[in-house]
Design a protein around this nucleic acid. Sequence first.
DNA 1: ATAGGCATTCCAGCAGGTGGAAGGTCAAGG
DNA 2: CCTTGACCTTCCACCTGCTGGAATGCCTAT
Lengths: 141, 141
Amino acid sequence: MNIGEAAIQSGLPPKTIRYYEEISLISPLRGANGYRTYGDKDIHLLRFLQRARSLGFSIEECRLLLSLYEDKHRASADVKSLALAKVEEIDLKLVELQSLRHTLQALAENCHGDDKPDCPIIDDLAGKHKHADHTARKHRQ
Amino acid sequence: MNIGEAAIQSGLPPKTIRYYEEISLISPLRGANGYRTYGDKDIHLLRFLQRARSLGFSIEECRLLLSLYEDKHRASADVKSLALAKVEEIDLKLVELQSLRHTLQALAENCHGDDKPDCPIIDDLAGKHKHADHTARKHRQ
DNA sequence: ATAGGCATTCCAGCAGGTGGAAGGTCAAGG
DNA sequence: CCTTGACCTTCCACCTGCTGGAATGCCTAT
């Protein structure tokens, strides 16, 4: 299949797919006419990338995830612990996403029109979880 | 509180906080010495931004979310429906995040060492949910 | 008063795309 | 066969969202 169809199947714009090729995340075949040709496996990878990127994983993190995903010798403890570390990161994201959801839901449902200057939801908002230590973690991208 | 402390409280680097000010996401006071001064409300906003950005919402989306969050006249149906639309987006992200989690967990636990060229987990991977229509949605950033 | 650690601004550069021009390919209709 | 339109190609410039570094100033402590 050509890039246009691959774009539809994966949910990524063609430009982005070409860019991912440029940075060696994916290597589609080429037809005799020079057109890129994508197989089912390529589509899997692209969808995987679409998901991971839209959820805030960086390109390099995606590269790592892909290496897990493609590693045919997954026995190594390294690889396993890497996967589990990513699972933990995801669990954190899940918590934050649920918290954000809760906030918005509350804004939509509970604050319909009252204009108290200090809506309790706002106080509730970001005051729960400590993040600290930005110095120790690369903030995305 | 100064920017360094605000950085610790919010989980964002000082540079990023200054950048957010530059693009008018936040407007801290200034002390007599020219130092930025952050109050509790500023910290709430910054934490909100930190969460939303790390979860893949664009700056413009964050600006929108903030406008919900700060709108003292939330009665309008527009604002409410916007919040609910964002809740739906978040639900989608939650599903995708869970799917990604499932994938990684399975990679870590179930595929320990077998080197079948087509592990069933890989087939299972991205083949479930249709995304289609990237043309109709701005892909992040 | 001087050293350290914080703050300021400004400017340059990187990551991850995205838009547009200039041109080649392909299937359909005249 | 030839054209038209939708697709594909490459290349280059631009945009977003930071991020690092230099030059400088403030502030607290010994």
